[in-house]
Simulated assay, not measured.
Amino acid sequence: MDERGAAVVVEDDADIRTLLAGLLTQSGFEVHQTSNGTDGVRAVMEHDPVIVTVDLGLPDIDGFEVARRIRRVTDAYILMLTARTEEIDTLMGLDAGADDYITKPFRPRELRARIEAMLRRPRVQQSAGPAVNGELWSTSNAPLSSQAGHGMSAGAISAPGTAPSAAPTPYSAATASEAATRHEEISYRLDGLELFPNLYRVTVEGVDVQLTPTEFILLRTLLTSRRMVRSKAQLFRTLRDEEPDAGTFVSDADERTIEVHMGNLRRKLGDDPRRPRWVETLRGVGYRSAGLPQAGDQGL
């Protein structure tokens, strides 16, 4: 395995597939290539990649459906590639779970820059689960120290309101103490929602909510900004790992992607934009938290 982990390229054009594989290999990834969506989803499940590139126009299932299927099993970064220039296609890709998109033809330097910008975003990782009968339990059978991986293994994560498919593993008092020390930090709480920055974990009324890395960053930014309004341009610069007020160019399409990501975030949280509990929109200005978050010990 190369230093940065695995990457999967889902692309039916052989020349572009070779180009993408070469760029990712040069960036330190072990690359696995597929020419159709079905094999691409299978490769993702087999290799647990850090990043996946998905072509929109595939011979069997389209890139939207591929992204949706991939997003169900992993929090890998998804970069959508499309030859279509219509904005609706880009927005549909983001809505399907992609983190970013790039249109063909593209410059290799631009593609590499977008990949590096995505990799600077935190990834949503599973952490220790809630205390049960006074003991700390894990959502997988691996020790907490080995759960720094990025994939969501089958059976390790349950949908809200359902039981885990595998029995949880209790931790010893020493392991729990070590875990608490390693992850000790403040959390941000607002009206039943709680966000743990270092654990990349979000709960609503105590139930874990699975967010993409992009959605997590947006929510974290709003909560840590307290009631300060953040414009769409500021939020997009934050996703590029820039200072919000850096003044770098942000296109109308980039701002529209923020709207799509915020819509997906609200949907996953169950937040009604007409009566917001957590994310408030100020039309023509931007977004802010709907209340003043409280900071405190995470108290797992």
Rank of each mutant, 00 (worst) to 15 (best):
R4W: 14
A7E: 08
V8Q: 09
V9K: 05
V9P: 10
V10Y: 03
D12N: 05
T18M: 12
L20R: 07
L20C: 08
S27Q: 14
F29K: 02
Q33R: 09
Q33H: 07
S35P: 06
S35T: 06
S35Y: 11
G40L: 06
R42Q: 15
V44K: 07
M45P: 02
M45F: 04
I51F: 15
T53A: 09
D60M: 13
F64E: 11
E65R: 13
R69P: 12
V73L: 03
T74V: 01
I78Y: 13
L79N: 09
L79K: 11
T85M: 04
D89M: 11
M92E: 14
G93C: 08
A98S: 07
D99L: 03
D99N: 15
T103S: 08
F106Q: 03
R107K: 08
A113R: 13
I115A: 12
E116C: 06
R120P: 10
S127E: 02
A128K: 01
P130A: 14
P130W: 08
V132K: 10
G134K: 08
G134F: 10
G134R: 08
W137H: 10
S138G: 11
S138V: 08
T139Q: 14
S140Q: 06
S145T: 15
Q147M: 15
G149H: 13
M152G: 09
A156D: 15
S158I: 02
G161C: 10
S165Y: 00
S165A: 10
S165W: 04
T169W: 05
Y171E: 15
S172G: 12
A176G: 04
S177E: 13
S177M: 10
A180V: 10
H183K: 11
S187I: 00
R189W: 05
D191A: 14
G192Q: 00
P197C: 00
V204G: 05
V209T: 01
T214L: 07
I217T: 13
T221R: 05
T224C: 05
R226A: 12
M228E: 15
V229I: 14
A233N: 06
F236P: 04
R240A: 03
D245C: 02
A246S: 15
T248W: 02
E255L: 00
R256Q: 11
M262I: 11
M262N: 01
G263A: 08
G263S: 14
R266C: 04
P276G: 00
R277A: 13
V279T: 09
E280D: 04
R283W: 03
G286S: 06
Y287E: 12
R288E: 12
A290M: 02
G291H: 04
L292P: 06
Q294E: 14
G296W: 01
D297C: 03
G299D: 11
G299M: 15
L300D: 14
